[in-house]
Design a protein around this nucleic acid. Structure first.
Length: 281
DNA sequence: AGTGTCGCCTGAATGC
DNA sequence: TGCATTCAGGCGACAC
């Protein structure tokens, strides 16, 4: 379930592994993922030097010397795997795209559920592209501020958890970090967004940034060069406070468990929400 | 315009 | 044991 920290960690791993290298060819092993691959995708990548790896929201951006940018999204189940020696790699099930590099290594994009994306656009058109045009600010940038969040949440009737997962409000916050941030801020995820008081908005703003920064740091520190021993990028052990912990104690729990029943699980927008009803108000 | 629901897709977990 | 059903979820499409 890659959210912003996982994607950031994948980007850092890719940066170490392939920036300044040259793509020999892009091997497309099917016609598309969530969307059909654009016409001419492979041709636009062939023999192109990779100048930089960046991230916008949950998208991986692979900048090419031509001025084109490869746009990759991992969706739900997408993984990037670095293989040192191309000839050692036998494509497995769901290895849909392989980036073959001139130095004999390759990067494998595997995505069982095919919710992922691979697209290409000229760098100058990136901000206006269909993937990015509607996106809100990066949560770790200065334009994401308590004042900004206050303005975006005003008059919103939707639940606060749904609101912070809205990419037009702020990008990168998925189901897991939304739950974790609301727990840290001690806010009930079902509250209408517009009912949050200024002090609560400030706490939530800080919590969103804090849980994301902590997770990025964990990804960086737990894995050498962001690459696991099997070459996979970006995933690491997490210690959730509430996510996927239905019925358990929350982090730092002093709640009377027999009475509260522990962490609750409800459904919002068709998605599971985990929270501590005793501590989140 | 804002808000809510659906469906894409497959593997793991669960149910009978 | 094995088959069927449910669930996971990012996010675009669509309905209201």
């Amino acid at each position: 379930m890659p959210e912003l920290p996982e994607v950031e960690t994948v980007c850092r791993g890719l940066d170490k592994a392939i920036t300044r290298k040259t793509l020999a060819r892009l091997e497309l092993r099917r016609k598309g993922l969530r969307f059909p691959f654009p016409r001419g995708l492979a041709q636009r990548c062939a023999q192109q030097r990779i100048t930089a790896i960046r991230r916008r929201a949950k998208y991986i951006l692979i900048h090419l010397a031509s001025g084109d940018v490869l746009i990759a999204h991992l969706g739900m189940s997408g993984r990037m795997v670095i293989v040192d020696r191309d000839e050692k790699h036998t494509p497995e099930k769901h290895d849909h795209v392989i980036f073959h590099l001139m130095d004999g290594s390759c990067v494998v994009f595997n995505d069982a559920r095919r919710f992922g994306v691979l697209d290409i656009a000229a760098e100058k058109d990136l901000a206006q592209s269909r993937h990015f045009a509607h996106l809100g600010p990066e949560p770790l940038d200065t334009d994401f501020s308590p004042a900004y969040l206050t303005q975006k949440l005003a008059d919103k009737k939707t639940a606060i958890k749904i609101a912070i997962m809205d990419q037009a409000v702020v990008v990168g916050v998925g189901n897991i970090y939304a739950a974790e941030a609301l727990f840290e801020a001690k806010i009930d995820p079902t509250r209408a967004a517009s009912t949050l008081k200024p002090a609560e908005i400030k706490k939530l703003w800080a919590a969103i940034r804090h849980v994301l920064e902590k997770a990025i740091a964990a990804g960086g520190s737990s894995i050498r060069d962001y690459v696991q021993s099997d070459g996979e990028l970006g995933y690491f052990q997490h210690q959730w406070a509430v996510y996927d912990k239905e019925g358990e104690k929350c982090r730092g729990c002093t709640c009377p468990l027999p009475k509260t029943g522990g962490i609750k699980r409800i459904t919002q927008g068709g998605r599971s929400t985990f929270y501590c009803a005793a501590r989140q108000k």
